[in-house]
Structure formats: structure tokens, C-alpha cells
């Protein structure tokens, strides 16, 4: 059963577009010590759809820039290549899953609301835990449940059964997945991360956000995402398929020497960051946008 499910998932994922060449080229450029921001801008702006969305996001409250950024080169200079690269990745993922969903009982707007909030919360917690790259942490939180979208798209009949089990029997989504498929969305998401050659810390975050103690590459980042998922669900932001708050993993809780007072102190900051991150929801519904054209970097 599990092998058959995995084969269908892998066949489905193989049909998804690879992440844009623009991301691969830009990442390669970064490894060249003589490269300028203008060079990077010239590469990214070749994909106008991505460039315009990236520009909209860099000008949002989430990045708190004092002045308008009008070109990708400016964004690279002001915010750094790492932020721009992670934004391209985020935008590309939204584009890859922009199919029209008709699954009854699954609201993709609220799914992204949960994922974006989780990204924002992971970024905040990562800063407190001393994770070396909080921007990558945002992407990790954003993508942690991406396996659910793979299931919705390629195993829709089973996905509907999972939702039904959650609603009728009141079991968590992960438990229902194991019952229907013999595997869960973390494993499915990991297959996608491998297909897309995502960096190991992101692959681990997707694979182990329910079981962070298994992480080997970036334990703190995976733990931050695990805690973010718990807190965002506890605060009732968005909906990722069920509304049950998962239990905090005691090994990471003790390992990171956390306590409730510390977590309590983070809640206000997380709430503010989640509020600022709402600009990412415009990627899901392009109600206000669409007409923007990125300024060229020539």
C-alpha cells in the first residue's frame, strides 16, 4: 500500500514544474565573489512575473524598509541577496501550487494563512533561539505543510477521506493520514523538497516539524518551526486541515531549556510579525495586483 502511494506521489511530483531557472541562476551567481547586485538583478528580472511579486513583498511592512524599493538590484543592496533569494523561492512555490482547488472541506486560503503565519512565527522564534538564518527559517515555516498540497493535488480521493476522518472521528490530520495512506504529509513533503533540491535545513524542517528531535542538520530551525506550528494553531490563525493543537515535543523543550514565561514573552512579537506577513496572502489571491511591472535592471 505504502509503496503504491509513494509511487503515485513521485509520479505526480515529477509532473510539477521544477523551480525556476532564475532561482538556480541567481543562487549560482551568489557563489561568485566578484558578482555585483546589478548582475543579480539582471538575472532575476528576466522572469517579470516573479520579479514584480518579489518587489511587492520587499516593499511590504514585513521587511520594514523606510523607502520605496523599485528594482531588484536595489532590493539586493538594501535587504541582501539572501532575503531576495528566499522571496523568489516563496513566490515560486505559490506559483507551483496555483491550481484551482475544489476540494470540499479544504480552504486553501486558510491553509496559506496558517503556513504564512507559521513562517512569520518561525522567523521570530529562530531569532530567539539563535538560528543562523532567520530568513531561511521563514521559508521553512511557510513550506512545512507543503506535503498536504501534494496530497490534495495528486491523491485527491485519499485526501478527502483524510479530511472526513478528521471531521467525523476528531483525530489529528497526521493520524488520519497514517490510517488512510500508511504515511504522512512530512514524508510526502520531503519527496517534493528532494525533487526541488531544496537546501537540507528546509528539507529537514518539512520532514521533521512534527518530530523535531530527529533533525540532524539544523535542530534549532526545525524546533522553531515545530513550536511555531503549535503556537499558530493555539492562536487559531488559519487552518491546515485540522484545528488540533499538537503537543510540544518534550525532548526539544528540555534540550532548549524553554519555559512558559519565555514563550509567553514571544507571543506579542509573533502576533505583530504575523500581522505584517499578511502581504504574502496577496500571492494567493491576486485581487489587488496583477498589473505591476517590475522595473528593469539594465
Amino acid at each position: 500500500m505504502k509503496e503504491e502511494v509513494m509511487k503515485r506521489i513521485i509520479d505526480g511530483i515529477a509532473g510539477l514544474p521544477t523551480l525556476p531557472t532564475v532561482l538556480q541562476r541567481a543562487t549560482k551567481l551568489l557563489q561568485d565573489p566578484d558578482i555585483s547586485a546589478a548582475d543579480v538583478g539582471r538575472v532575476i528580472v528576466k522572469d517579470q512575473a516573479i520579479a514584480s511579486k518579489v518587489l511587492r513583498l520587499v516593499n511590504s511592512a514585513f521587511y520594514g524598509c523606510q523607502r520605496q524599493i523599485s528594482t531588484i538590484s536595489q532590493a539586493v543592496v538594501i535587504l541582501g541577496f539572501n532575503i531576495v533569494k528566499n522571496l523568489i523561492l516563496s513566490v515560486s512555490v505559490f506559483e507551483s501550487f496555483s491550481y484551482d482547488s475544489q476540494t470540499e472541506g479544504f480552504d486553501r486560503y486558510r491553509f496559506w494563512e496558517h503556513s504564512i503565519a507559521c513562517g512569520a512565527a518561525t522567523r521570530v522564534i529562530s531569532r530567539h533561539l539563535g538560528v543562523k538564518d532567520p530568513e531561511e527559517a521563514f521559508v521553512g515555516g511557510l513550506l512545512h505543510d507543503i506535503g498536504k498540497l501534494v496530497l490534495e493535488q495528486f491523491l485527491n480521493e485519499e485526501f478527502v477521506k483524510i479530511l472526513r476522518l478528521v471531521n467525523e472521528r476528531g483525530v489529528p490530520f497526521l493520524v488520519a493520514e497514517e490510517e488512510v495512506l500508511g504515511m504522512g504529509h512530512p514524508e510526502v513533503g520531503r519527496s517534493l523538497a528532494q525533487r526541488w533540491n531544496l537546501p537540507p535545513p528546509l528539507e529537514e524542517t518539512i520532514a521533521y516539524h512534527h518530530n523535531p528531535a530527529s533533525a540532524e542538520v539544523e535542530l534549532k530551525l526545525v524546533s522553531a518551526c515545530h513550536l511555531a506550528d503549535v503556537l499558530v494553531k493555539a492562536m487559531g490563525i488559519g487552518h491546515s486541515g485540522d484545528d488540533f493543537v499538537p503537543e510540544i515535543n518534550k525532548r526539544i523543550w528540555e534540550g532548549l531549556k524553554l519555559d512558559l514565561k519565555t514563550i509567553s514573552g514571544w507571543l506579542g512579537e509573533i502576533g505583530d510579525e504575523v500581522e505584517k506577513s499578511s502581504s504574502f496572502l496577496t500571492l494567493f489571491k491576486e485581487e489587488e495586483g496583477g498589473g505591476e511591472v517590475a522595473q528593469t535592471d539594465t
Binding site: 493555539a234 510540544i248 514563550i263
Partner: peptide, 16 residues
């Protein structure tokens, strides 16, 4: 409603 599966756990009760 959201904490109903974990409320017996003292840590989760405190978090709630």
C-alpha cells in the same frame, strides 16, 4: 476546542 486532545498534559495546559 483546539486543546482538547492535549489538555491532560501539564505543559500544554499551562500553554493554553
Amino acid at each position: 476546542r483546539r486543546f482538547r486532545l492535549v489538555i491532560e498534559d501539564p505543559l500544554m495546559g499551562g500553554l493554553k
